[in-house]
C-alpha cells in the first residue's frame, strides 16, 4: 500500500520535472551571443528566463535565402538566415507582438502575424558573408520583398530593423 503510494508520488515528481525541462531544451550558445529573445513564459529558455543565440545556433534553424532590392542596399543582394518564426519556436515564445530592438536602441513593433504568415527572416548573411555591425550586422530583419512585392512600402521598411540585438515578445 505505502510502496504503491511512494511509487505514484515518484511518478508524479518525474512528470513535474519533465514538464519544467522539456526534451527539446535549447542548447547553450558556444560562441558570442548575438540575439536575446525575451518574453513571458518562454518555453525553452536557456539562460535566466531568456533564450540566447549565437550565430551557429541561428544558422542551424530552418531558414531561407532571398535575392532582392532594399532601400538600404545598392543593387540586388542575397540575404540568408533563419525564419523569424523558427527562431521564436526555438525559444518557445508565444505572444501577440514583439519589439525588435537594435544596437543603437532603435526599436520597432512587429506583430506576430508577420512572423507566422510571412516568410520573414533574421538575415545572418548578405551575399554569403556574415554582416559586421558596420555593415548592418549582425542580424537584419528581412521581409520577403522578393516573393511578396506588395510589402515594399514604408510600413514594412520601418519594421525592417538591422543591427538587431534583442527580440521582446509580449502578450
Amino acid at each position: 500500500m505505502t510502496i504503491m503510494r511512494l511509487k505514484m508520488l515518484a511518478a508524479c515528481a518525474v512528470a513535474i520535472v519533465t514538464l519544467h525541462h522539456p526534451a527539446s531544451a535549447l542548447e547553450m550558445p558556444k560562441g558570442e551571443v548575438i540575439l536575446t529573445v525575451t518574453g513571458p513564459n518562454l518555453e525553452h529558455p536557456n539562460s535566466k528566463n531568456v533564450a540566447v543565440f549565437d550565430l551557429e545556433m541561428l544558422e542551424k534553424l530552418a531558414g531561407r535565402t532571398g535575392t532582392m532590392e532594399t532601400p538600404w542596399t545598392s543593387g540586388k543582394v542575397t540575404f540568408t538566415g533563419p525564419l523569424l518564426r523558427a527562431v521564436l519556436e526555438a525559444a518557445g515564445a508565444h505572444g501577440k507582438s514583439m519589439k525588435v530592438r537594435a544596437l543603437n536602441d532603435y526599436a520597432a513593433d512587429v506583430p506576430m502575424e508577420d512572423a507566422m504568415t510571412l516568410d520573414t527572416m533574421l538575415a545572418t548573411r548578405m551575399n554569403g558573408n556574415t554582416m559586421s555591425v558596420r555593415n548592418k550586422g549582425p542580424l537584419f530583419l528581412i521581409y520577403p520583398f522578393d516573393s511578396t512585392p506588395s510589402l515594399f512600402n514604408e510600413k514594412y521598411f520601418s519594421r525592417s530593423v538591422w543591427q538587431i540585438k534583442q527580440i521582446e515578445v509580449s502578450e
Binding site: W72, S74, L103, V133, R134, K136, Q163
Partner: peptide, 12 residues
C-alpha cells in the same frame, strides 16, 4: 561601427 554603417547607408 554603428556610425560607420549609418555612413555607408547614406553612401549607398
Amino acid at each position: 561601427d554603428i556610425l560607420y554603417s549609418r555612413m555607408s547607408i547614406l553612401e549607398e
